[in-house]
């Protein structure tokens, strides 16, 4: 009998993490900062606990996703739950609307060239 491959992942499926939901709250941007508002309590879903621990300091949604090793959509759903429960709060990036204030592309390219020439 051939040796079976050993599973190294977790047996959780993503639909169990989201409770069967697949529609995420799209108001959360990738770089939205998340801050926990309370300590995790016993009996909470482990992902919620981890998010609350992680977001003691403001953390971007995309980072939460990276740390939890979960897809963005799943993290959005989880964060949506936590926001609804009032356990975390989301801070939308201040500069979202001020893209126009960024330097010109040509200027940036020049800087890049200058840096390469160093």
């Amino acid at each position: 009998m051939t040796r079976k491959p050993v599973d190294i992942g977790v047996p959780d499926r993503l639909y169990m993490v989201t409770g069967g939901r697949s529609e995420a709250d799209n108001s959360l941007d990738l770089v939205t900062l998340i801050v926990s508002e309370c300590e995790p309590t016993a009996g909470m879903q482990s992902e919620h606990t981890r998010i609350l621990d992680l977001c003691r300091h403001p953390t971007a949604l995309v980072e939460v996703s990276a740390e939890l090793k979960l897809p963005i959509t799943v993290v959005r759903i989880l964060l949506g739950d936590l926001i609804d429960m009032g356990k975390v709060s989301a801070r939308h990036p201040r500069a979202a609307g001020s893209v126009a204030a960024l330097p010109e592309t040509a200027l940036l390219q020049e800087v890049l060239h200058g840096l390469r020439n160093l």
């Binding site: 079976k4 050993v6 599973d7 047996p11 959780d12 499926r13 409770g19």
Partner: peptide, 28 residues
């Protein structure tokens, strides 16, 4: 025969339960 998977590390109870529930039709 055998189960389809073999885990090489302890699996926490939460994952065990979710892994079990996730396999049934009426998991919700």
């Amino acid at each position: 025969g055998r189960s389809s998977r073999v885990w090489n590390k302890p699996i926490v109870m939460e994952s065990i339960l979710r892994g079990a529930v996730g396999r049934i039709a009426a998991y919700r």
